[in-house]
Simulated assay, not measured.
Amino acid sequence: MSRRGWGIAGAVAGVAVLGAVGGPLAYAALQEDAAPAATVQAQPTEVALAPDTDGTWTVAAGSTAGYRVEEVLNGADVTVAGTTDRVDGTLVVDGGDLTAAEVTVDVASVTTDSDRRDGYFREQVMDVAAHPTATFAVTGPVDLPELSGTPVTVPVAGELTLAGTTRPVEAALSAVRTADGVDVSGSVPVTFADHGIEAPDLGFVRVEDEGSVEFLLRLVR
């Protein structure tokens, strides 16, 4: 082969090597962090709010739940969030106290921006065939402040069930009264190993062992 031919071959080989090594790095660098979690919002002052908070409240359309974790993808830190709108549950308020609450999430329907990640999450991480849902339940009465159109934050003790394992957790719930009822958002910190879940470590991608479960609930009576 001529010197020019060898030069061309070498350049092609060099591009191939850079693509194999740098491609994943470039992909990682292009990944954007997930958007911040949806939270309750202050209501306009002219809105007529729901008249009373006592009663049984049901999770309605517009509610979401999911998870948020930190990934290290080929050396780049990326925040990943998965969400679903397949959320059910009820909350009971009696005499201004939150006396009972349980929220169930369809884990198999949680999605991110990557089908491959979602498939691995469902089959290898969460085993949704055996454990299709996750639940959060309040374990004791919670003294609620008077709810208005301005969000208030309340600490809540509860139990979180993931992959069939239940653990006690502490959560901070934000609540606001709306025209249709009550909106509640919150974030529950999670150590995955506590639930028997092994955080993925595939070499090119590693997931931190700690993350959070997030939710925004639209509640109607």
Rank of each mutant, 00 (worst) to 15 (best):
G66W: 00
F204P: 14
D33A: 12
E32S: 15
A101K: 02
G75M: 01
G186H: 02
T150M: 01
L30V: 15
G181N: 03
M1F: 09
A81I: 00
V154I: 04
T79L: 07
G66M: 00
V87L: 05
V72C: 11
A38R: 09
R4Y: 04
A134N: 08
R177V: 01
A29P: 07
M126S: 09
T112D: 11
R117H: 14
T99K: 14
N74F: 10
E71F: 01
L217H: 03
A193G: 13
A193F: 03
E46Q: 14
T165H: 14
R167L: 05
D88S: 15
G203K: 02
V176F: 03
A26S: 14
P145R: 05
E146D: 13
V154D: 02
A157H: 13
V182L: 02
E210F: 04
M1C: 14
L162W: 09
A16G: 13
V213A: 13
R122D: 15
S109P: 02
F192K: 05
A81Y: 10
V110A: 11
A13T: 03
A129Y: 10
D143N: 14
L18T: 13
A76R: 13
V107D: 04
V40S: 07
L216W: 01
D115P: 15
D118N: 07
A9N: 10
G22C: 03
S114I: 01
T45W: 06
